[in-house]
């Protein structure tokens, strides 16, 4: 078993997981709710990328920003339909979790109706699939692209949250919505921006995931949804840097459990880890003591 090969696999898969989980973490940090429709947006992102490639005849690379924009739009719709009405009523966080489940069911079923349940693929030749030559390990161009896109998007998000005015407003609302509103921040806008960003990240992750495995189905979000939960729990719920670290840890765990021959149990490993983290370090591996106790 080639250990370097496994590390390479863990790294690019980790990039996709981190990208996906960032959207979860972003919404949780700003709104304090868990958006279980995130994986449905991820799936939609993959389909939009596919439609953009097959119907609009644009290249796979141009499809990524298209998918991000549309998925971001879906994110905003999600906020308006499933979250904003409950927020106005000051409903408990659990109600918002349930409404996000309702939205997820809706999104998956609409996709099923439009695209069917058969797995779909990017057209032949649209993805460069020959491994790079002259290397001791197998790396395909697509894996490098996935990692580069993921890292660039993460860096952009970090810049946006830390350096820009919108990011400042997001952090202020995350810290205390009431005080932020008193200081003149339009929290409704901040929530919409947050959902747009989360949706865009999910969309990008969806296209990249679709490219990597080249099978796109309405149910592709299911496995990633629960893995994404593990990622953000690992990083500390709502911790953005933590989500990035968590994504790579989960991917490494998964890849190495396959490598040691436990491919049937790789998800059991992941969920057992989730369980243990929640019990012993609910603030996450990299987090400090949480403000609200679990």
């Amino acid at each position: 078993m080639n250990i370097t090969q496994q590390i390479v696999n863990a790294i690019w898969l980790g990039g996709v997981y981190s990208l996906f989980a960032l959207g979860y973490a972003l919404v949780f940090s700003v709104l304090g709710v868990l958006n279980l429709a995130h994986s449905a947006v991820f799936m939609w992102g993959a389909f939009i990328g596919l439609v953009a490639v097959t119907q609009l005849n644009i290249s796979v690379w141009a499809a990524i920003p298209v998918a991000m924009l549309v998925a971001g739009g879906i994110g905003i719709v999600l906020d308006v339909v499933a979250f904003a009405p409950l927020r106005r009523r000051n409903a408990p966080r659990i109600s918002q979790l349930i409404s996000s489940i309702g939205a997820a069911i809706l999104l998956v079923n609409i996709a099923q109706l439009i695209f069917g349940t058969q797995p779909q693929r990017f057209p032949l030749g649209s993805i460069p699939s020959d491994p790079l030559e002259g290397l001791p390990i197998r790396i395909t161009p697509i894996q490098i692209v996935i990692l580069v896109v993921a890292v660039v998007l993460m860096a952009m998000l970090q810049y946006l949250v830390v350096r820009t005015r919108a990011g400042q407003a997001m952090r202020a609302v995350a810290f205390n919505q009431r005080v932020a509103s008193l200081l003149g921040i339009n929290s409704g806008n901040v929530f919409r921006i947050t959902f747009f960003l989360a949706g865009a990240l999910a969309g990008a992750a969806g296209v990249l995931f679709g490219l990597a495995y080249n099978t796109i189905t309405p149910f592709m979000g299911d496995s990633v949804a629960l893995k994404g939960l593990t990622v953000i729990v690992l990083g500390g719920l709502g911790n953005i840097q933590g989500a990035v670290v968590g994504g790579f840890v989960v991917a490494a765990l998964e890849v190495f459990s396959i490598a040691i021959g436990g491919s049937n149990y790789r998800e059991a490993f992941v969920f057992t880890l989730l369980f243990l983290i929640l019990l012993f370090r609910p603030q996450g591996l990299v987090g400090q003591a949480a403000e609200t106790r679990a």
Partner: peptide, 27 residues
């Protein structure tokens, strides 16, 4: 151990439990 957790944390932990049960039965 799990019931020491609250709302969303409890939800996630119990989702994890359900998945582990499913995978164990599978294998």
């Amino acid at each position: 151990p799990v019931l020491r957790l609250r709302d969303i944390y409890l939800a996630i932990a119990t989702i994890g439990f359900g998945e582990v049960v499913r995978i164990l039965i599978l294998n």
